[in-house]
Design a protein around this nucleic acid. Structure first.
Lengths: 251, 251
DNA sequence: CGGGCTTTTGAGCCAAATCAAAAATAGTGG
DNA sequence: CCACTATTTTTGATTTGGCTCAAAAGCCCG
């Protein structure tokens, strides 16, 4: 299978075969990590750039009262700490949610590469900006959608994101989070998440048993969630280029 | 008074006088805009980069049921659409909350400038990454803090952010949002926000009359909010450089 | 087969929402 | 400077979505 990192970044820029090769060659090493292990902690200034190749990780913060809020899911192809380093030190932590494979890219070599390869640099910044767009959508979802729509929305999103890296064939995907993880992502209690899930199952929208999530009724789930995938910006590099050309023309 | 844009970006990079001048010279024009006017709408691919010079603006999305969620406050010195253009088209809208002065920078000239001035480019990306960090904190706040702590947190944040551009002397600042705006930012109802505000007043933490917000008890408010300003990354360029040097040393 | 998760169920409660209306403020034009 | 509106803030009453606490049931895996 093609590296999920390359696969994802192709949505951000039209990469040449050479550029794809350069990117893959940067993967200095990969490590299998257990679930619930911190990869990077608040206050760190990580020397390497981490990429998820397999499994699920997350960004999170812990509150004074012990509560945990997950702010992002990191799925195969996602960077953990690409540009945050520019801020000096991490203002949040990153940990695996499930057993995962994490790749390391030497930051200095990545820097050199992006200086010489504007297309690659573009793709990497694109990835960071999409992260931000996802964050915005999560905020909207938490602020203004009731619990069942919120959970539905998260399933819609993960279906599209995993699909983009070839990991959601037939609307079926490995989704190994616990309901507690989901609750910490949604800002809900685990008990309530459980009841919402049962409702979604009863309504024939999803099935979720063991680690396998299946979206049974894509249209129904998306309608419930009010899901519009535009914020994921997966229209592809070609689309984005067209948009930029159009902008240039208007100036 | 020094341009708030320059003032803010100095936290992101150590800018030379020449660079500051270049930045200011980019401001092609500025316009006074009424409150509650859309500056940029979802789907746009804006030709200029907008910067708030005076007043308050916001990023927001509107939901199918008509609800509005504000995802960010844009205060003097903040960009509205700096790097989002890299995504092709806007996935959210931006409007003023109050009468404001908005500056326009020609995107092509900005692009040229950043290509030749790595320090400036750094400062601009820093600003984008701080936006993202603020978004993360808002998410945590909405997900895991009860309403009174959440509102307290927003006041703590705005105090520091306005202070950074010299607009919060003596813990007193112009804060012209309505309680409805605040509710749409916090994901709460306006009625509940009103009751929370009264509680904060009764507890002697703030006063907020007309458009003037005064934080009467900084320590008390921050303790209530569980506020840690690290996510704003206003330690200053010197601090950040030190951190980077340290990283380099560890490699 | 037993211990440690995770999911599920039940009961009671509370924070925040909704609905509705009054009071206070801020503009606006005469 | 004052009436006249429109908006914003405040109050009250009621409802509810989601929380907490607690325990049972199911699963996974060694």
């Amino acid at each position: 299978m093609v590296n999920p990192l390359v696969r994802k970044l192709e949505y951000g820029a039209r990469l040449s075969d050479e550029e794809k090769g350069l990117l893959e060659s940067l993967i200095a090493g990969a490590e299998d990590v257990d679930g619930h292990q911190d990869l990077i902690s608040e206050g760190d200034a990580p020397a390497h750039v981490h990429v998820v190749l397999k499994g699920f990780a997350c960004r999170y913060k812990t509150l004074p009262d012990g509560g945990r809020q997950i702010m992002a899911w990191l799925v195969p192809g996602d960077f953990c700490d690409l540009h945050v380093s520019l801020l000096g030190e991490m203002d949040h932590s990153i940990s695996t949610l499930t057993p995962s494979t994490i790749a390391f890219l030497p930051r200095d070599r990545l820097d050199v590469l992006t200086e010489n390869r504007p297309t690659l640099a573009h793709a990497l910044w694109w990835a960071t900006l999409v992260d931000e767009a996802v964050l915005r959508e999560w905020l909207v979802t938490m602020g203004r959608r009731p619990a069942h729509r919120q959970i539905a929305h998260m399933f819609c999103e993960v279906r599209v994101r995993l699909g983009a890296v070839g990991m959601a064939d037939d609307d079926t995907m490995d989704f190994p989070l616990s309901q507690t993880d989901l609750a910490d992502s949604a800002g809900l209690s685990a008990v309530h998440v459980n009841r919402v899930i049962q409702q979604l199952r009863d309504d024939g929208l999803i099935s979720w048993r063991g680690h396998v999530l299946k979206v049974l009724d894509v249209a129904g789930l998306e309608a419930l969630a009010g899901f519009n995938p535009n914020y994921l910006h997966l229209g592809g590099a070609a689309v984005a280029e067209g948009a930029r050309a159009a902008v240039a023309g208007w100036r």
